[in-house]
Amino acid sequence: MLPATAVALAVLAALLAWPVPAALARSRWPVRDPLVALVCWQAVGLAGGLSMIGALLVHGLAPWGHSLPEAVWTVLTSRPAGTAVRGDHWVALTLAAVLAFQLVGVLVLSWVRIARTRRRHRELLELVVQPGPQADARLLEHPAPVAFCIPGARPLLVLSSGMVAELDEEQLAAVVAHERAHLAERHHLLLLPFVAWKAALPVLPAAERAHGSVRELVEMRADDVALGSLHGTAPRRTLAEAIVAAAGGQGGGAVPTGALAVSGTGVRARVVRLLEPADPLPATARWVALAGAVLLLLAPTALLLLPAVS
């Protein structure tokens, strides 16, 4: 019979693999505070991975100790197991190793592949771009209205000539502020775990749902940060008009793979959110959500490190 700790971790992993992500994706409150929602999504992803691997690891090492640290120390010191080691223990250990290697390996591989793609696009763009209307922006001769940034050690913010021609000065400033927000808050790092999760577990519906939700929330967060630096009588309408203009240029093929663009995911939802803003999330609700994210991370950690429940 599985130890209760392994069962608890398996139940938590099951909850974080389907119902919790589904509920969070359907909730309406994340659009009121994308930053808090992004923290919650990161907690769901990390706690889910810990729970899946931990459930297998705890069961596999159960013969060697009453807690994971004790069992690991027993194995490292080459002491014999306290109880008989059955076939299901070896199977669990093998699956834990495979799953850990899969998740971590895909994460590293995704990082390397995306970084290589961004570096190649940056090197090609630097050959053809010119100084732009903003100090930190570069101008690309392209008829479609396009704006994007390539994050990394040498970030690149690009505006197409079509974008500069179509937008007025305030709208162009809104676009640049949006892309600056992506770079300043390193949104590509928030996206990476979910790109890897989707690639590592393609059969898991929650992986696709989480990836889509995080992409949309990242864009909404960049919109919010951009609004804080905009001036004028109607900054929300200005940014919304710029997003719509950029969305019309998506078919131009000028946005490279791995870039973050103002015309990214959830254009309709973002425009509606800008033009019909909901009330901000109350401070109490923010702290409750953040506390829930912390507890979600502490739960599998405590189950893994504290003495096993028998």
Rank of each mutant, 00 (worst) to 15 (best):
W41Q: 08
G232R: 03
V75C: 12
L157M: 10
A17E: 12
D224P: 00
H121K: 00
A115T: 12
Q42L: 14
P19N: 07
H178K: 05
G87N: 08
L50K: 01
L217Q: 06
V272T: 08
L12M: 12
A184L: 09
A62T: 15
R236Y: 05
H188P: 00
A278I: 04
L24H: 12
G132H: 14
V214L: 08
V98C: 01
L99Y: 12
A302N: 02
R237T: 07
A207D: 00
Q171F: 07
R221T: 09
L227E: 01
L95W: 14
D33Q: 10
Q102L: 13
L281D: 10
E126N: 03
A293R: 03
V36Q: 01
T233G: 06
A199N: 04
E208F: 05
W90P: 00
A23E: 02
P80G: 11
V255C: 08
T117M: 08
V271F: 05
H187I: 04
L95S: 07
T74E: 04
A25V: 15
V214R: 08
A222K: 08
V164T: 13
A207W: 03
A13P: 05
S27N: 08
G152D: 09
P280V: 04
V272Q: 11
G82M: 12
A22L: 10
R28H: 09
L56C: 11
F101C: 04
G292N: 09
L275R: 10
L109T: 03
H182R: 09
E126R: 11
D33P: 01
L204Q: 06
P63G: 09
R268N: 10
A289K: 11
R215L: 07
P69N: 05
L103M: 14
C40N: 09
T301W: 06
A245D: 02
S160F: 06
V164N: 01
H142Q: 14
L303G: 07
W287L: 15
D136C: 01
V271M: 03
S160N: 10
A144S: 13
A144N: 06
L303F: 11
L159G: 04
L38D: 06
T301P: 02
A247S: 14
V7T: 12
D279I: 04
A43V: 14
V203F: 09
L275A: 05
W73R: 14
M52R: 06
V91Y: 06
R268L: 15
R86I: 02
A173I: 08
H66M: 09
R186F: 06
V294C: 07
L298W: 05
A184R: 07
L167Q: 00
G87V: 14
E126G: 03
L201Q: 02
V218K: 01
G65F: 11
A234I: 03
G87C: 08
E208W: 14
E276M: 10
T117I: 11
R215S: 12
V106H: 00
R215M: 13
V294K: 05
R215N: 14
L2T: 09
A4W: 11
